[in-house]
Design a protein around this nucleic acid. Sequence first.
DNA 1: TCCGATGTTGCGGGTTCACGCAAGACGCGG
DNA 2: CCGCGTCTTGCGTGAACCCGCAACATCGGA
Lengths: 241, 241
Amino acid sequence: MKVLIVEDDPLHRSYLHEAVCAALPECDTVIEAENGTAGERLARDHKSAHIVMDLQMASRNGIEAARTIWKERPETRILFWSNYSDEAYVRGVSRIVPDGAAYGYVLKSASDERLKLALRSIFVESQCVIDREVRGLQQKSLGQTNGFTDSEYEILVDIALGLTDRAIARRRNLSLRSVQNRLQQLYDKLDVYQTAGDDHEDGRFNLRARAVTVALLRKLLNYSALERAETELQEWLESGR
Amino acid sequence: MKVLIVEDDPLHRSYLHEAVCAALPECDTVIEAENGTAGERLARDHKSAHIVMDLQMASRNGIEAARTIWKERPETRILFWSNYSDEAYVRGVSRIVPDGAAYGYVLKSASDERLKLALRSIFVESQCVIDREVRGLQQKSLGQTNGFTDSEYEILVDIALGLTDRAIARRRNLSLRSVQNRLQQLYDKLDVYQTAGDDHEDGRFNLRARAVTVALLRKLLNYSALERAETELQEWLESGR
DNA sequence: TCCGATGTTGCGGGTTCACGCAAGACGCGG
DNA sequence: CCGCGTCTTGCGTGAACCCGCAACATCGGA
């Protein structure tokens, strides 16, 4: 068995290397990449079927890399190993995993034991292993309760990018008013109307901008999600008119 | 000599521990804290004069912790050890360092050698050591050229928080129009007017929201800066009315 | 002292936003 | 087939925003 490790922090990389060797005696080769771009290339060259992938890397982040890798070989098994369990990451990952693919999501704070178990489950048993904490988010967000619909999430991203109502309407093929409707839903769910509702009507927020920060603070959005959205936007601007 | 390490990643913590022992033979005690809160407490209990501090930690980040530590003992020497050189961090740090205090800023990507040198310079020689890359940012941002004034930065934070023009005016004791002036300066510098100026006048941006994302993408802002700003805002809302 | 550079404020108007109201459009179980 | 909920759309209003124009302050030199 061959395992590819994609991780930009050298410390974590060598830790992973050890963990992989310890957990998988049947593994005879370990390859390392220190960013997403190199990861993609090595995965292609070695036809890797087993990958441990960091999210958030400088040059090309784990989600991007995983997407192109899975596009070429949907049967590849990928274990995501991340510092955070931001909803933005979780959503990003579950958006790109191919049907029936085996993958895992383990937090860096997990114990050695947890990590080794996950490695074996995914790479040997082809089972999905999702950290409990992450799993919680998934349920909440994909199930309706208390979570955000895709359409709400979509419009959140759009205003975060700084698009105008009209621009969003064109991009999403909606009428101006529908866009504004969705915005209100969003404002509702994000609970942007606060200032605790008390006293002076003054000191209000700019709902649009406020929504974005609240989303950021709640980790519905994060840097890498913004980054991805931004490049998508640029593509749309150029091609789609 | 006693050294306090504040860092939430166990791997990095033990790496630092080793590095400190290797670089500073005169160091007889190393204490470790795994978040900002614990770091503050230990610094107080041990009257620590030498601290290595991670930025971005889950519970209470390095800047917060450093601020309260320096408030109690301005002569404390702190070496910041961070993954990133975001302008937001650099600005955050240089905003809180007391006059004449010795401090350092080293990136995690630096070599062992660099780190050890920095440790010795700061803790033994009381010299400031700032990573070259970080230094560049500092110059650019504190010197006028191409950088952002404090007032511009301030208003950037305010719109990022989602404050309305009027609210900003009250908070900063300015007239409505002045606020809008500063906003325009900001829009200018952030180059928000683009869409490359070409073709259709349509497809414009919401300048306010766009400014925030552009700032985020350029790392003028980041999560922890937002977080700090948000708590400051809440304080202001409660007390200052 | 006067002058120009920079920063603050008021006024006015064109645009975009936020949102209530109401008319359709679609889907779904009865 | 009808009724009901959810989603979409149009219209209209009041507020907030973007910004050009112009009158003061301020402050550091010449």
